[in-house]
Nucleic acid binder design. Structure first.
Lengths: 128, 128
DNA sequence: CCGCTTTTTACAAACTATTTACACGTCCGC
DNA sequence: GCGGACGTGTAAATAGTTTGTAAAAAGCGG
């Protein structure tokens, strides 16, 4: 198994008004239509959603989804986030927030959009 | 019993609009015409159909139909899938889906293509 | 041997992933 | 406010991997 294997633990399905994800079957459904995701896209979305509401630093994402260490500098993550957003259609920016200079955060559909950002320390379990 | 012996259990016949298979008699009928299948072709089709709707990883197919272990690298499976598709005529691609990077899946004739494409976790019972 | 099945080989096509290049935004000191 | 430095978004090019296909080689039972 490569670094792409984000998690094999049983995790409760995610579900909100538009999006639902079954982590066991690795199936994401957006407005009743199944999302066609590549492995990396799924892994990335998966990781973000499983930590919905938490900021996940670029480093952590690159580490968990790509197996990259802190040294590596790449735009790959951004490209994949872009593709994910595209597939999330209109809701894209509501779902995936960019936390400038830090990373990304997935927010459930109508989660209160507190101001953005920083001082909220990121999901520690992931990169500590 | 060689590795080709996929199953000797009694299994209920399969049947849909165009295809039916009697697993006891090992006979497959496509639009009222009996399919002429070689042993390997039958074993492969059989295994796929008996797990209709489930993704079966290459490894599992190679294991169950050929007795190959995970180390073995071969295109045999692909060639056999191709022959099967040929014999399935026009319905070929509707019946046998390719799950890129994972394996194959047989779908009953008008199964909701809901579950189309990629990246669902496969039939665990087969390779776990 | 002969005919049929299966496997291998070799290459084409399809698909996914990564990098590159650059436009655009945001931060921050002045 | 202004402007540069740096982060991010995006499209396009490139690389890498998997699958499809045809054809030849190998295997096998009669």
């Amino acid at each position: 198994m490569g670094p792409s294997a984000v998690s094999s633990d049983r995790v409760l399905p995610y579900r909100d008004e538009h999006l639902s994800i079954d982590f066991d079957q690795q199936v994401a459904i957006l407005d009743a239509e199944r999302m066609i995701l590549t492995r990396k896209e799924y892994d990335l979305l998966s990781l973000l959603v499983q930590h919905a509401g938490e900021i996940i630093p670029r480093e952590a994402l690159l580490m968990r989804v790509w197996g990259y260490g802190a040294e590596i500098r790449t735009r790959t993550l951004d490209v994949h986030v872009r593709r994910l957003r595209k597939k999330l259609g209109n809701y894209a920016d509501q779902y995936i927030e960019t936390i400038f200079g830090i990373g990304y955060r997935f927010q459930p559909f109508h989660a209160p959009r507190f101001f953005q950002h920083p001082s909220g320390k990121p999901a520690e379990a992931l990169w500590a």
